[in-house]
Write a protein that binds this DNA or RNA. Structure first.
Length: 605
RNA sequence: GGCGCUGUAGCUCAACUGAAUAGAGCAUCUGACUACGGAUCAGAAGGUUUUGGGUUUGAAUCCCAACAGCGUCACCA
């Protein structure tokens, strides 16, 4: 990176000297030279033809000649059409590697005391069922994003808004009361979230049976099928009971609240286990049961200020038609809150708790419209970060046989998934005889790291905003663009370094300047140096996948080169040291990069 | 229907703010095992970047239109 900056500045000076043009060094783009041409960095001269008023070849030639004479870093150049390929002096690469080597956290920026404060909301589960594959993508993206944003020098607060109230929880509670026989996580041996989820399913089953029965009855009485079904859904005693329970909840009925608290506790314990397995966590958790009333207050205040309006039935609305959107309900006629109201209340509480500069919501793309509206509303209500809130919108995870649908039982449960990935990792390693000299604990630990690495990398390498396909069979592949392949390369390098240390080789802090590097080695140094730019770009674009794909490309490049010969048996001492340092830094950068994604690296596997 | 997102090899995915012959992996075929760790490496084959226009020295990328897929348009959360 330093080399690129230097050359960009030199190129700017060249343009000034040759054509008298003032071009900012920052605007000059140097690209990596394509493999089939000679050189390391390429300046595309087309944009400067209007300055030189000469043919592309001539312009490139002039700039090349100038740089050759005036820039220490340029050791040669060649021109092909409008492309000026520059060859960087070997010593510059060695110096660059020294530079990378001297910084254990190369590419990462420590946030200062007064760095911008970024709050990232992710996960945001409902408390009526366990987490599934879609939540896993959310959690991994949220965690990775937080790491990356922090590595770009921001202070980060990770937050979770738990949707702990509403009709869906009442359904689980009611079913537990009716069909549960007092079952608890302890008595049943089930994880709390799974237990509650089972009762949610039970509710749905009984409810649908009721509806079916009622529909048939109404049809027999002569109603049209559709009308009969609609009526049945309304009349269902079970649903009416659930609604009644919600009303009691809102009225703070002690009995309902006690049950609600107890069952939510079970769920939280279950979630905590899942979060722990996924390696994610939060700095501050909010509950909608605390924030929804706050939201109502905000809306009523807005109403007084004339930001919103009340309809005849008493409901409160925001008119966003001047913004190109529609009208949006904020409070129901009965005064209760809707989803949007809660988000407003949550925003207020957050702003009171933290001096937020920027807010990022990690939420699925089915809510794009919601966040478009929320940004406008928060802005109207006077939140400084409202207008510029970021909805980190990610796509759905699809399965080979289509979408996940809870009704059709095609949901992939998060806990099952994690267990299965780890089991597969263990099995594959056992078959390959990888674990022969390890203790059971070591085996378990490595299998956990590798299984989770496979899962995380699989979900994170894909551009977040796209829908993606999760194929269980492929996700545990250990070759190609996968987490385990990267982990494996890391473990191998660590093994080499251990052997080097055992044989008494000590790595110097500064490399001898006169090592001869092959083109490929120079490229790896260049690739390593890119890490800083990749992290910065990933932070600006909110793009964990960029980091993932970078790591893979680096590892692949390293493997290709170092497969054929032995670092440790290299006879030229300088070369050997150089290669060890280069390898050590590949391992370091890969660990840093994967670390940003929440993926651990095993020392052995 | 309105709005939004997506469309790249058989499949899953890349391609930084427009740049040279659009890259990987899987699957298929062919090679390399006295291996610093073979959970590897090399090679072959595979493309009119959905289609049609436009802007540009240059377009997968930007603009317009069509087609296809998905999402959303709840007094659900």
């Amino acid at each position: 990176m330093k080399i690129e900056q230097q050359l960009a500045a030199d190129a700017a000076a060249a343009l000034k000297a040759l054509y008298g043009a003032d071009v900012e060094a920052g605007s000059i783009q140097l690209e990596k030279t394509k493999r089939e041409f000679e050189g390391h960095l390429t300046l595309v001269v087309f944009p400067y033809l209007r300055l030189s008023r000469k043919k592309p070849e001539e312009t490139a030639e002039e700039i090349g000649r100038y740089l050759m004479e005036h820039s220490a870093a340029v050791a040669g150049y060649n021109v092909i059409k409008g492309f000026l390929n520059l060859t960087v002096a070997p010593a510059a690469w060695v110096a660059l590697l020294d530079d990378i080597n001297s910084d254990a956290r190369y590419g990462l920026t420590e946030p200062g005391e007064d760095a911008p404060l970024v709050m990232i909301e992710y996960s945001s589960p409902n408390t009526n069922k366990p987490l599934h594959l879609g939540h896993v993508r959310n959690n991994l993206l949220g965690w990775a994003l937080a790491q990356i944003v922090e590595a770009c020098g921001n202070r980060v607060v990770k937050t979770n808004i738990v949707n702990d109230r509403g009709i869906h929880i009442c359904k689980s509670m009611l079913a537990w009361q009716k069909y549960g026989n007092g079952e608890t996580p302890e008595s049943s041996g089930k994880k709390g979230d799974h237990l509650i989820g089972d009762y949610y399913v039970a509710f749905d089953q009984h409810y649908r049976a009721e509806v079916k029965e009622l529909t048939a009855k109404y049809e027999a009485e002569g109603m049209a099928p559709e009308a009969a079904k609609e009526r049945a859904e309304k009349d269902s005693p079970l649903m009416q009971e659930a609604h009644a329970m919600l009303v009691r909840w809102e009225q703070n009925d002690p009995e309902v609240r006690a049950l609600w608290r107890k069952m939510n506790e079970w769920v939280y314990e279950g979630f905590d286990q899942t979060y722990k397995a996924l390696g994610v966590g939060f700095d501050k958790i909010y509950y909608e049961s605390d924030t929804y009333l706050e939201g109502r207050k905000m809306v009523l205040e807005g109403l007084e200020k004339g930001l919103f309006y009340r309809r005849d039935d008493g409901s409160v609305w925001a008119d966003l038609r001047s913004e190109g959107l529609d009208e949006k309900l904020l409070l129901r006629a009965d005064g209760t809150s809707v989803y949007m109201t809660q988000d407003i209340g949550t925003a207020k509480m957050r702003f009171e708790d933290f001096p937020i500069d920027k807010m990022i919501y990690v939420v699925g793309n089915e809510q794009n419209y919601h966040f478009q509206v929320l940004a406008i509303l928060l802005d109207k209500l006077g939140f400084e970060w409202g207008k510029s809130l970021v909805h980190f919108s990610y796509g759905m995870v699809e399965l080979p046989n289509g979408k996940m649908k809870s009704r059709e039982g095609t949901v992939v449960d998060a806990d099952d998934l994690v267990a299965e990935m780890v089991r597969q990792a263990r099995e594959t390693a056992d078959e390959a005889g990888k674990f022969d000299d390890m203790s059971e604990e070591e085996k378990d630990e490595v299998a956990r790291i590798v299984g989770m690495g496979a899962l995380k990398y699989f979900l994170l390498k894909v551009d977040a905003r796209k829908n993606m396909l999760f194929n269980p069979a492929e996700s545990i592949d250990f070759n190609g663009n996968t987490g385990p392949f990267i982990q494996y390369t890391y473990a191998r390098i660590r093994s080499i370094l251990r052997k080097a240390a055992d044989s008494g080789i000590r790595l110097p802090e500064t490399l001898p300047a006169d090592v001869e590097l092959s083109r490929k080695e120079e490229e790896i140094v260049q690739h390593l140096a890119d890490f800083a730019a990749v992290v910065r770009q990933a932070g600006a674009d909110y793009s964990p996948s960029a980091v993932a794909n970078y790591c893979y490309a680096l590892v692949k490049e390293y493997n290709q080169f170092y497969h054929d010969f032995s670092v440790l048996r290299e006879e030229d001492e300088k070369k050997k040291i150089f290669r060890l340092v280069l390898s050590a830094n590949v391992a370091k950068i890969v660990r840093l990069g994967m670390g940003l994604l929440g993926i651990e690296m095993p020392e052995r596997m």
